[in-house]
Amino acid sequence: MKANERIFHAVLFEVLAVSLSIMGLAMFTDYDVTALSGTMIVVATIAMIWNFIYNWIFDQFFTGEKTQRTLSLRIFHVVLFELGLLIATVPVMAYLLNVSIWEAFVMDIGVTIFITIYAFTFNWVYDSVRVVLVRRVARSESLVM
C-alpha cells in the first residue's frame, strides 16, 4: 500500500470505529455523549497515527500478499496493535474523563475488545475488497493499452 491508501484505510477505519465506540460507551456508561465524543476523537487521532506507523512496520516484517495471511498471523497483528494502543490511550482517557487509571483501563478494555473484533473483520474485508478493485483496475488498464 502506498501512503495515500494507508491514510484512506486509517481514516475509514477510525470514522467507523469512533462512531460505533461512542454508541457502545453511551449505552454502557453514564458519561455524557459529548464528553465521550471528544474523548473518542482524541483516542481515534492517537489510533490513526499508531495505525499508520504500526502497519508500516508490520508490513516490513510480514511481506507478501495480504489475502494469504493466516488466521494466526491476523490474530497476532490485531492483538499486538491493540496492546500498543492500550498503553497509549489509557492515560489519555483517564485525564479527559477525569477518572482513575483503573476506571479508564476498564473502559478502554471494553472498547479494545470491541475494536479488536472490529479491526480483525474490517481489515480482512478491506484486504479482500482491495484485491478485487486492484485486479479490476489492472484489467481496465490492460484493455486501454
Results as ranks from 00 to 15, higher is better:
Met1Ser: 06
Met1His: 12
Lys2Asp: 15
Asn4Ser: 11
Arg6Asp: 06
Arg6Ala: 10
Phe8Ser: 15
Leu12Gly: 13
Phe13Cys: 00
Glu14Thr: 04
Leu16Thr: 03
Leu16Asp: 03
Ala17Leu: 13
Ala17Phe: 12
Ser19Leu: 15
Leu20Ala: 09
Leu20Val: 03
Leu20His: 05
Gly24Trp: 12
Gly24Thr: 07
Ala26Asp: 15
Met27Glu: 10
Phe28Arg: 07
Thr29Ser: 15
Tyr31Trp: 08
Tyr31Met: 03
Tyr31Asp: 06
Asp32Tyr: 05
Asp32Arg: 05
Asp32Pro: 01
Thr34Ala: 15
Thr34Arg: 14
Thr34Gly: 04
Ala35Glu: 13
Ala35Lys: 13
Leu36Ser: 06
Gly38Leu: 05
Met40Tyr: 03
Met40Ala: 08
Ile41Trp: 08
Val42Trp: 00
Val42Gly: 01
Ala44Asn: 06
Ala44Val: 08
Thr45Tyr: 07
Ile46His: 03
Ala47Phe: 05
Ala47Tyr: 02
Met48Asp: 04
Ile49His: 02
Asn51Val: 02
Tyr54Lys: 14
Tyr54Gln: 11
Asn55Pro: 00
Ile57Leu: 14
Phe58Asn: 02
Asp59His: 15
Gln60Lys: 09
Gln60Tyr: 10
Phe62Gln: 06
Phe62Pro: 05
Thr63Val: 12
Thr63Trp: 08
Gly64Trp: 11
Glu65Ala: 11
Glu65Asn: 09
Glu65Leu: 04
Lys66Cys: 01
Thr67Arg: 00
Thr67Met: 01
Thr67Pro: 00
Gln68Val: 00
Arg69Trp: 04
Thr70Ala: 06
Leu71Thr: 11
Leu71Lys: 08
Ser72Tyr: 09
Ile75Ala: 14
Ile75His: 10
Phe76Leu: 11
His77Val: 01
His77Lys: 05
Val78Cys: 10
Val79Pro: 00
Val79Tyr: 04
Leu80Gly: 14
Glu82Gly: 05
Glu82Trp: 04
Gly84Thr: 02
Gly84His: 03
Ile87Lys: 04
Ile87Leu: 14
Pro91Ile: 10
Pro91Asn: 05
Val92Lys: 11
Leu96Met: 15
Leu96Tyr: 14
Asn98Pro: 07
Val99Ser: 07
Ser100Ala: 03
Ser100Lys: 08
Ile101Arg: 02
Trp102Val: 12
Ala104Lys: 02
Met107Ser: 03
Gly110His: 07
Thr112Ser: 14
Ile113Ser: 07
Phe114Arg: 03
Phe114Trp: 13
Phe114Gly: 05
Phe114Gln: 07
Phe114Thr: 06
Thr116Phe: 12
Ile117Trp: 00
Tyr118Glu: 04
Ala119Arg: 01
Thr121Ile: 15
Thr121Val: 15
Phe122Glu: 07
Phe122Ile: 02
Asn123Arg: 12
Asp127Cys: 09
Asp127Tyr: 14
Ser128Cys: 11
Ser128Tyr: 10
Val129Trp: 13
Val131Tyr: 09
Val132Met: 06
Leu133Gln: 05
Arg135Cys: 00
Arg136Asp: 09
Arg136Cys: 03
Val137Asn: 06
Ala138Lys: 06
Arg139Ile: 10
Glu141Lys: 14
Leu143Met: 14
Leu143Cys: 02
Val144Tyr: 15
Met145Asn: 08
Met145Ser: 07
